[in-house]
Amino acid sequence: MHSIYARVNGVSGLWSTCIMVLLAAVALSSFLFNADPKGNLDIVSLKVFHSKTRRYPYRNEEISFVKFNISTDFTPLFNWNTKQLFVYLEAEYTNAQGVNNTVILWDRIVRRKEQAKIDVVQKDKYRLRDLSGSFRDVLPAQYSLKYNVMPYVGVLSYGEAARTLEPIDFPEAKDSVS
């Protein structure tokens, strides 16, 4: 005869095995639902200004402000395993020292399918600064709208919804901004 502890152990082992198999099936099914949303990304204006930093008040830096237009639909990415999306606008450029930089200018977390249609015209959420302090001799920047699908169960998946057709040059810096 089995004791009560042996019976509880057998039942809990069966349930945990069933739950793990179910979770593995959910994670594997995420690979079957592939969606590739496409959208439009337009850089309306790009301005560079001289600025004094709070950290180093004696040092002049250049800050870039980007105004952009985004219109895309991420609703095909939402299924029963999608918890939320992380959508972000990214700028990639090479500075004067030859270092590749990737900077996030704007981001948004989309939690519901009803919020997945994005139509935004605004300035950047985060300022674009180069570590060298200047955008002089910097190669043109390529802008792209990317997303990250965060599932309830499974691996994160990344993708790109839009990209500027040609790299955009940084203009000469104007007078200071406070």
Rank of each mutant, 00 (worst) to 15 (best):
T94Y: 07
C18I: 05
R112N: 13
V155D: 07
F49K: 11
N95F: 09
K146T: 06
K174Q: 14
D73Q: 13
G154T: 14
R111N: 10
S71V: 15
S71H: 14
L131R: 05
A25G: 13
Y143S: 00
E90K: 12
Y143D: 02
K125C: 00
S30D: 15
V103P: 03
E172K: 15
R127F: 02
Y58V: 10
F65V: 10
L32S: 04
Q84S: 14
D175L: 02
A162W: 04
L145Y: 02
L145V: 02
F49V: 03
E62Q: 15
K67A: 02
N9W: 13
P167E: 09
P151I: 03
T75Q: 13
I104N: 01
F33R: 10
F135P: 03
K38R: 15
A6N: 07
N60E: 13
P167K: 08
K47I: 06
V153G: 03
I168R: 10
T82V: 11
Y126E: 04
L156M: 15
S29Q: 09
P167L: 07
G159R: 01
D124V: 10
R129A: 00
V44D: 03
I70Q: 01
G10V: 06
E90L: 10
F135T: 04
R111K: 12
D175F: 09
F65L: 14
N40Q: 15
E166S: 01
E166R: 02
T164V: 14
I4N: 02
L22V: 06
G154L: 14
Q142H: 07
S29I: 00
R54S: 14
N34C: 11
S64P: 12
N79V: 08
I43H: 08
P151S: 08
V66H: 01
A141T: 08
S144F: 01
N148W: 02
W80T: 11
Y88M: 05
W80Y: 15
S176D: 10
E62T: 06
R111E: 01
S12Q: 07
T94Q: 15
S45Y: 08
D42Y: 06
K125W: 00
D169G: 08
Q84E: 15
P167N: 08
A173F: 09
I118Q: 07
M1S: 06
V99S: 08
N100S: 14
Y5S: 13
N95G: 03
Y158C: 01
N34D: 13
M150D: 06
I63V: 15
H50L: 10
D107H: 10
D42C: 01
A116W: 05
A91V: 04
F135G: 04
V149C: 09
L139Q: 11
F135H: 04
V155P: 03
